[in-house]
Nucleic acid binder design. Sequence first.
DNA 1: TATGAATGAGCGTTCATTCAT
DNA 2: AATGAATGAACGCTCATTCAT
Lengths: 205, 205, 205, 205
Amino acid sequence: MPRVSEEHLERRRQQILDAAQTCFARKGLHTTTMQDVFAESGLSAGAVYRYFKSKDHLIAALTTEATVDLHAAMSEAVYSDPLPTPPELMHTVAEAVVRLSTPGGAVRLIPQAWSLALTDPNIADYVRTNMAGVRKLWFDYTRRMVDIGWLPPDADTDAVAKTLLGLLPGFILQYLIMGDVDPETLTHGVEQLFPTFRHTAVAPG
Amino acid sequence: MPRVSEEHLERRRQQILDAAQTCFARKGLHTTTMQDVFAESGLSAGAVYRYFKSKDHLIAALTTEATVDLHAAMSEAVYSDPLPTPPELMHTVAEAVVRLSTPGGAVRLIPQAWSLALTDPNIADYVRTNMAGVRKLWFDYTRRMVDIGWLPPDADTDAVAKTLLGLLPGFILQYLIMGDVDPETLTHGVEQLFPTFRHTAVAPG
Amino acid sequence: MPRVSEEHLERRRQQILDAAQTCFARKGLHTTTMQDVFAESGLSAGAVYRYFKSKDHLIAALTTEATVDLHAAMSEAVYSDPLPTPPELMHTVAEAVVRLSTPGGAVRLIPQAWSLALTDPNIADYVRTNMAGVRKLWFDYTRRMVDIGWLPPDADTDAVAKTLLGLLPGFILQYLIMGDVDPETLTHGVEQLFPTFRHTAVAPG
Amino acid sequence: MPRVSEEHLERRRQQILDAAQTCFARKGLHTTTMQDVFAESGLSAGAVYRYFKSKDHLIAALTTEATVDLHAAMSEAVYSDPLPTPPELMHTVAEAVVRLSTPGGAVRLIPQAWSLALTDPNIADYVRTNMAGVRKLWFDYTRRMVDIGWLPPDADTDAVAKTLLGLLPGFILQYLIMGDVDPETLTHGVEQLFPTFRHTAVAPG
DNA sequence: TATGAATGAGCGTTCATTCAT
DNA sequence: AATGAATGAACGCTCATTCAT
């Protein structure tokens, strides 16, 4: 029964990706076997291998997939008007992290991708690309901070962006491993460390 | 070669741990085979298994070992006099990260331990313990910040500590994966985000 | 070679069982390696493990299998008409033992199963079940002996059955280890020890 | 500290044999490791290997050792005066079996030796020798039966001896594996199957 | 004599991948 | 397009044995 619709193909692909994410988030990248993925997806070995030509390809695909929702949430916040203060922004992002950290959630794959990137050059490329994409948002944010006067015109926006972004892994890890932080923790911490950023003029809705 | 000194035993143990760290840092926890460890250590299978009863035990031992140097460096900074400002402290810690990130360095194991902790409850215990140990340092630091007047007496020191600690994973990952941050980046970022903390009275040398 | 008939699966299973029996009978349960079984069966490791999930499962399956032919031979004799005399019955059973004791024969596995049952509770269950099944035949036989008048109505048929069954291991072991007994030996021995059992009336066909 | 007394050597040897018997009876010949024996005996690897040059030598020594007590018990009964009837003899022997079947008891090694003899020619020699020794007792017994008139002068004493001996393995196995026979069971079974053997003249004490 | 650390061949088992159907 | 039986290299680990001390 050849000649199948593009849509069918895409649905199959997503079905496999979903199954793999569930498995990987639950058991880990290496501990999950392809047989696990076959079982979770309800598809045969041959079917899965038609869509992803190796386990590594599946991992690579998910590595990218894992950050898209988080990226979207951050993107919305960073470009919103009026510009959120750093505590506000961190709160929004932290909430997205929590939302995407359910069992099987995409955020649970992120630390695994970081880890893999340290020893697998192939995965490192994907992870670097994703991290660069996220960091771009923070660069834009810090530039908007300058525009708005929250940072001086000669501020080292690069360093500020990298530093702010750096708070995110710390939150993800403490949330997933220690389980004793929540968005408010991060927000309060930032509020007390940073000076108060205040909108001098209310931006029009 | 029986009836061997306690010291000999300890040296052997360390020899294995060193070999394993080199392998794990280079190839990753799962990709490293015990054969790799045998070869790197110059010991036989039986010899290694005399000291560590499984690969998991070796991983667990290294998981703990991986943070001791970093912990020591942080400890020295946190309890030093006069109290370092946050940018100063971050600089010290970031430099320790860099120093311990050489090929085969202990810091390269840390993200792998984080990753493993998400799916292996056994390792999670070790990682939690280590993370709690490090966080204790930051709690102490934030309490000293209050004592010195850098934070108000009613500051949420818990949140501040968790937030500050959170900068560390971000630095480690950006340093190891992106390679475009250095201790100065972090220091500058923190300097520009945080208000200036100044010692009002010079502590006696 | 997927989507294979039930029959094919059963044939494969039997192919493995046959190979394993040959190996086990030749080299012993513990001395036989799985590699031996792969080689003897002409199948790969993976193929064998698809049908039996461990060496122990293979042993358990063969432990049961080892007695079925003997059980069948005994069953036929025990329920035949007219009732065979004890010497006749022993002769029939002894002949079955001899027939099944060729190199690679099932009977060669039986003492190994007995041995294993003494220290492996898992195998002990299988062996007990099989032994109980065989003993049931002797219980039925002794009850028929009572019916026919060869034993008094108040005879301790339980003890008689256990005693008669007890002759079997002795024959098997002397046949396999000493090699100087044959069905006639047993028959003669029983004839001379036991009183003459005679059918007083010819049973109708 | 060289030049140790003969007696000391023999004591050490026995110490090892005892430890090995305990282990073998508990875990089985193959499952028991030499490390188990070292631990049970409280001796070092080197010490054990000074007395037995391989695990196989230890097994061979125990294989012979396993039947000596049983042999002695049977010997006493067979040569006693007046001649015990078959039921009496079986009772005596069965009681010896029970007595020597405690955890760690020698009888628990016997079926393991039978099993090993089927595939290990070296052990088969030992087992054959032991079995021949035991059978010699039964030959003598059946000859005494003829002398006393319990069997006709032209009786096939060889077949009778082999048949009677054959009851022993059956009892041992049913006792060890099924656990639902005792000396009385065997005695009753023999009594009911065999004609009554009666001493026509009382033998002088 | 006695020790016990060290050896290393070889075990049982797994699992990413292929390909005949 | 889809199946799933089959492959086999390679894994983690064991344990009888040796020999420097």
